[in-house]
Simulated assay, not measured.
Amino acid sequence: MTNVALIGCTGMVGAHILTSLLANSSITRVDTISRRTPQAAGASPQPKLTTFVSDDTSKWASQLSSLTPTPSIFISAFATTRGAAGGFENQYKIEHGLNVELAKAARDAGTKVYVLISSSGADIKSGFGYTKMKGEIEEDVKALGFERTVILRPGLITGQRDESRPMEAAVRFVAGAFGKLHSSLKDGWAQDADVIGKAAVNVGLKALDGDVPAGSEKVWVLYGSDIIQHGKA
């Protein structure tokens, strides 16, 4: 039986990860850390869900470190936007800073498996600030030396967001239209948030059991087709 901690549980992908965790019978406890109460906590009683809600993100690492029993798996779907953060510099401080700080706290507490929702364009050598930041998060987390690190690199994430992103919504509409014609027209470059959420849980559990592809014993990176495979399994 497995205990899992999750940050980013109120986002589009994170909410689906939480739903999948709660539905999985092999997971006995789920701890979330967030600024807002996750929707799943307000729907119906969730005996295995414990939430920590605080706007003061400086408290998050100590909260994660104090969890008993220690989570076997730590999943991060935590991200923000340039607009919400008030510029890219603040976005970097928040998204990179919190992801790495919480990963360190989980590693030091004894968590074995770390699962990160990243981006298909993540690259520390990228000339674009966002994709470079994603690449730096990946590299800094890998350097922490978890027993196993799992990185999901989805393409365009399709689904319903709470906040308005008109440009992205237009592309998601196109992806949805292609998907209705045939899944192969969409799956290579866009994945549904619920599929990503299920994949994150499934591969996290596989990594904990040591069921990873050859050559990925320490770091397992999954792209679009891999996410589809494990999210629809």
Rank of each mutant, 00 (worst) to 15 (best):
D162T: 06
L102M: 14
D162F: 07
L6C: 05
G231E: 06
W220I: 10
Q63D: 08
T70G: 02
A233W: 13
N90F: 01
I157F: 03
E89I: 01
A214G: 13
E136Q: 02
S54C: 09
V201T: 15
T28D: 08
A84K: 02
R161E: 04
D192I: 04
F88S: 01
K125D: 10
V203M: 09
T80E: 01
G14Q: 08
V203S: 10
A85I: 05
H16Q: 12
V219H: 09
S120P: 04
G129V: 01
R29C: 07
Y114A: 04
G145S: 13
S118N: 11
A61Y: 04
T50Y: 04
Q229D: 12
A199C: 15
D140T: 00
Q91E: 03
Q191F: 03
I75G: 00
E101Q: 02
D55V: 04
T70N: 02
L222W: 14
G176Q: 10
E147R: 03
L21V: 08
I157T: 13
I94R: 05
T37N: 11
L152D: 07
G176E: 07
F146D: 08
V171H: 07
E147W: 01
G215E: 13
P213K: 01
T37W: 11
F74S: 03
A43K: 08
P166F: 09
R36Y: 07
D140M: 01
S164W: 15
A79G: 00
F173A: 14
L22R: 01
R148C: 08
G135W: 00
S26A: 08
I227T: 10
A122V: 02
W189M: 12
D187S: 07
S225E: 15
F178A: 12
L6H: 15
D123I: 14
Y130E: 00
I124E: 06
S58V: 06
A5K: 01
S65C: 00
T51E: 05
D209V: 09
D187L: 09
S216I: 12
T37K: 13
N3K: 11
G204T: 15
R165K: 14
N202E: 11
K232S: 14
A199G: 09
I94S: 05
V150I: 11
A200L: 04
A190P: 11
Q63I: 11
V203C: 11
Y130G: 02
S164M: 08
G204H: 15
G87Y: 01
G8F: 00
S126M: 03
G42P: 03
